[in-house]
Design a protein around this nucleic acid. Structure first.
Length: 375
RNA sequence: GGGUAGGUGGUCGAGUGGUUAAUGGCACCAGACUGUAAAUCUGGCCGUGAGAGCGUACGUUGGUUCGAAUCCAACCCUACCCA
């Protein structure tokens, strides 16, 4: 009995999109799902109650690297694990620090053994090996844990990408060997940059390791949308059908719909919460930079189609005022709305898959949102 | 009435003879943001012009000088102290 299993409910006859359930020790996840990111054991500006009751989040992410540095995984283990520590009793997924290999590229050095980081906090040196990452993730106690990978930047040369991908596979094997807990599911991460043959090789090699779920890493790193879609549409169908498929780091509405269409079950992203803190709202009619002067006397709510607490109670003018004055409530209300916008979008996506109608929904959504073309 | 300090672009505040349309901060106006070093970052911010440029500008008026926000004089105003 593995900790994580996937139940396929329906496949959209017209697109191949999947409607399913991921079973975890902390409950079921209806998929496709959007997962809010809570790097430091908190989805910035949101309480767990708000995430459950208002956002209707089913699962959230946390980060191995950041929690290892502060407050330390041992402390969280002592607290009884991440769920208890942060008062979240639903599923959690911990990212492995692979993205930090990418985003902290100036502060790290990669070898076969692992990655040596210079802490961005105090300059201290830390070695992350696959074994160390698993030790940390087991201490944190998330339901789904990710194997240690390297997320390559875009663009990267073929030879480097190949070596990096093969090393990521070796690291995945070491992660699997190091993994001991039975109540956590370890996912493998597919790499290979923007080269189809490398993606194919990565999937095939990782499949042999028989992980309970697989993720696509290393895309949505600054490439054009065409490149993103090319790799997404090429790679997803190669992934096992009886296991969850997770696309890492994707969160704009169009990317989420494209991911679902290609057969992805899970996505996560910091975008909605970051945009919110920076004063931008996602709506059914496109992005609103609510900080801008045009909303000074706009007495409408953010999105007439939204059912969130923010939209039920507050005007654009008030939200603009809060953001302009740097009030905490402004970031909170926008974060709540943006997260709810995406979870509601995915609720709709799930219904459209059940009705074999996701392709039509995409067209309708794009037109209203203001995306100019379907690629 | 006397004394002292001071009046700079929306604001606070640098700048004490030329390279100054004038450092910075804030405010304001935009843009970016996709497994969070992010309540962050980037750009704009006198007028006009696509631009080189041109015009106007450091309380007011006058003066010194090749050249003044910067030096001199008078005046106006502000703050504090004394009467």
């Amino acid at each position: 009995m593995t900790a994580i299993t996937y139940e396929l409910l329906h496949i959209d006859k017209n697109s191949g999109a999947r409607r399913g359930i991921v079973h975890t020790p902390h409950g079921d996840i209806e998929t496709p799902v959007f997962m809010p990111v809570g790097t430091l054991a908190t989805v910035k500006a949101m309480s767990p109650e708000e995430l459950k009751e208002d956002v209707k989040a089913q699962i959230i992410l946390s980060n191995t690297y950041h929690l290892y540095l502060r407050p330390g995984h041992e402390l969280i283990k002592e607290a009884g694990g991440l769920h208890k520590f942060m008062n979240w009793d639903k599923p959690i997924l911990t990212d492995c620090g692979g993205f930090q290999v990418f985003s902290l590229s100036a502060l790290r050095k990669i070898t076969e053994e692992g990655v040596e980081f210079t802490s961005h906090l105090d300059g201290s040196k830390h070695l992350f090996t696959p074994e160390k990452v698993i030790e940390i993730e087991e201490a944190l106690g998330a339901d789904i844990i990710m194997s240690f990978d390297e997320c390559c930047e875009y663009p990267s040369e073929y030879e480097y990408t190949k070596k990096s991908m093969e090393r990521t596979t070796r690291w995945a094997e070491r992660c699997k060997k190091a993994h001991t807990t039975e109540n956590q599911g370890l996912f493998g991460i597919i790499q290979g940059g923007f080269y189809e043959d490398l993606r194919k090789q990565s999937v095939e090699d990782l499949k042999k390791l028989d992980f309970p779920g697989y993720a696509i890493g290393g895309i949505s790193v600054g490439e054009p949308k065409e490149e993103f879609l090319k790799i997404l549409r090429y790679t997803t169908p190669l992934m096992p059908e009886n296991k969850p498929r997770y696309l890492m780091g994707v969160g704009s509405p169009d990317y989420l719909i494209e991911a679902a269409l290609s057969g992805i079950d899970m996505c996560d992203c910091v975008l909605p919460t970051r945009l919110a803190r920076h004063g931008t709202a996602l709506t059914s009619k496109g992005k609103l930079v609510i900080r801008n002067a045009e909303f000074e006397r706009d007495w409408k709510n953010l999105d007439e189609e939204c059912d969130c607490y923010t939209c039920k109670n507050y005007t654009r003018a008030y939200l603009r005022h809060l953001i302009k004055t740097n009030e905490i409530l402004g970031m909170r209300l926008l974060s709540l709305h943006n997260l709810r916008f995406l979870t509601k979008l995915m609720e709709r996506v799930r219904i459209e898959i059940e009705n074999d109608n996701l392709l039509n929904f995409r067209k309708e959504f794009y037109e209203k949102y203001g995306y100019d073309k379907i690629i």
